[in-house]
Design a binder for these strands. Structure first.
Ligand code: ZN
Ligand code: ZN
Ligand code: ZN
Ligand code: ZN
Lengths: 168, 168
DNA sequence: CTTGACCCTGTAGTGACTACAGGGTGTGCA
DNA sequence: TGCACACCCTGTAGTCACTACAGGGTCAAG
């Protein structure tokens, strides 16, 4: 099986397959006389394993570890359980952080309902005033007074910052 | 105010401030005779505006747009409202995707409770069997039969894939 | 013999930073 | 004056998991 066929069977792009090989996740296949990669059913399984783990949000480093555990049959599986637990914890934290973010955005959105001039937009006004030290609906939850410095935002952006290139 | 002082007052790292300037988000400040950046209160506000928006999960591109709207007082604020709406939609989608992910991981986690040899770990077994085409608890929700091709995972990983370097 | 589909390597780009390397500046103290 | 030390500068390269070429080679059909 050539790389294009493997790509078709797994739904993984050709360049990604080559990338996984370069990263040492996928074992290097035999080569034809002309240098073409020739894959076996075993490597199809390997790639599906990687894709399955990726679909569960694991990093390539995690998958590398998992593959090592898979190879070492005697290994105490506690490490595997822990890896999954950490993954769950990570995802859970992200969910919580994003839910807070959604609430903050909804509170901000509520500041403007009509179509006005930008100068009169409640959203923009809130953002500008907050940048001058005023409390804001988004970072001043219900009842909180927030006199003094409301700076620093807990670096929430850093914690939630993600690339969104993969969204349309 | 030198860059270090601005960093202290905003909680933003010096290198990040220089990065924002390079990216055209922060206006270039005056320079001292020796080339040191000298910031005014206005730029402090500018930076706080950026940080506030970042903490709401906005991309630098979004913030650039928002800053442009802020400068153009006559501009119809519908564009601002829309920007926030899109941000809310994006975050909401991410929350939903991550919640599904969490459920999938919890279902998988449930496959192993003890400390056994890796060969007998229910988690690892599930992952390996799934890579050979078998249905799995994580991608075969309650009641779904999943005979035939269960491949492709909706490319969920792609949609949720994020860097986790910023988590310890 | 040409077309077109496929394959190869290697490099550079994405986003939002972060981390140096290798230098210059400014202040305080002995 | 000499020196330490904190701060500043530019420029480049690294992070993660891909993605997108550029510039070439291979192979079967028509
Ligand atoms: Zn508005
Ligand atoms: Zn706010
Ligand atoms: Zn186990
Ligand atoms: Zn699964």
């Amino acid at each position: 099986m050539l790389i294009g066929e493997l790509a078709r069977q797994t739904g993984c792009e050709v360049e990604t397959i080559r990338y996984y090989e370069r990263e040492g996740l996928l074992s290097a296949p035999q080569r034809s006389a002309s240098g073409y990669r020739r894959y076996t059913a075993e490597q199809l399984g390997e790639l599906n394993f990687i894709l399955h783990c990726r679909s569960l949000g694991m990093s390539l480093a995690d998958i590398r570890n998992l593959a090592a555990f898979k190879a070492d049959h005697q290994h105490d599986c506690e490490d595997i359980n822990q890896l999954i637990d950490q993954q769950i914890a990570k995802v859970h934290q992200q969910v919580e952080a994003l839910r807070l973010l959604e609430q903050q955005l909804l509170a901000l959105r509520d500041k403007c309902h009509d179509s006005r001039a930008a100068a009169d937009c409640g959203i923009l006004q809130t953002l500008v005033e907050a940048s001058e030290g005023a409390p804001c609906v988004c970072h001043t939850p219900f009842g909180q007074d927030n006199h003094g410095h409301s700076q620093d935002y807990d670096h929430a952006a850093k914690k939630n910052g993600r690339s969104n290139k993969d969204r349309p």
